[in-house]
């Protein structure tokens, strides 16, 4: 996963290319399937290549790239770019999924709608951990927040999904702690 240049500094072009599928999936997940999620990937790759000397060999390249991509995503939100319109999730815009049956497709569609409704910082944590398989530690680093924050955001996100998917909070049980700031959008260094 980690690629370094022959002189042992930075990361090489080929290594970044190998990470493209994961960058595309992460961008898709952050934007909840926005059709122009690849613009984020493009921006990320341009920035990564430009700053490749800043990559520390021996560290996780994918995590470094995710940090860059996530920062672009946050900048976009601040600039109000509309690639991130998650309020109006298109019905089944994600490719490559062939649900076995109608009921299954409806469940996935429902889940997608609920993912889009999560606070963005909760969604980001959930996607890094549940989809991208990042450790809590790596996720904390990517998002520039303490590991405890990763845990609590994850818990809130999963709890919200559980309730939404069941439609009844009474049978969801085992409430995670409430409170904390949803609004803090941390910029990873």
């Amino acid at each position: 996963m980690v690629g370094t240049t022959t002189d042992g500094t930075g990361c090489d072009h080929a290594a970044i290319v190998r990470e493209l599928p994961y960058l595309r999936r992460f961008a898709r997940a952050l934007t909840n399937g926005a059709s122009n999620a690849d613009d984020l990937v493009h921006e990320c790759v341009v920035n990564a290549l430009r700053n490749s000397s800043k990559f520390e060999p021996g560290t996780n390249l994918r995590a470094w790239l995710f940090t860059i991509l996530r920062n672009s995503f946050i900048s976009d939100i601040r600039r109000n770019r509309h690639r991130l319109d998650t309020t109006n999730v298109p019905q089944w815009a994600c490719g490559g999924v062939s649900p076995a049956n109608q009921e299954d497709a409806m469940m996935l569609g429902h889940l997608r709608t609920e993912l889009a409704r999560l606070p963005k910082e909760q969604n980001a944590v959930l996607m890094l951990v549940a989809l991208e398989g990042m450790s809590y530690e790596q996720t904390a680093e990517i998002l520039g927040v303490p590991v405890g924050t990763v845990r609590s955001r994850l818990s809130r996100a999963r709890h919200a999904l559980r309730i939404a998917m069941e439609g009844d909070p009474r049978i969801a049980g085992n409430n995670p702690p409430r409170g904390g700031t949803f609004a803090t959008v941390a910029h990873a260094a």
Partner: peptide, 15 residues
């Protein structure tokens, strides 16, 4: 939940 999230977004890996 985890498996379902994969099924929603994993398509992006092969496009």
């Amino acid at each position: 939940q985890k498996r379902a999230i994969h099924r929603i977004f994993d398509g992006a890996l092969d496009e």
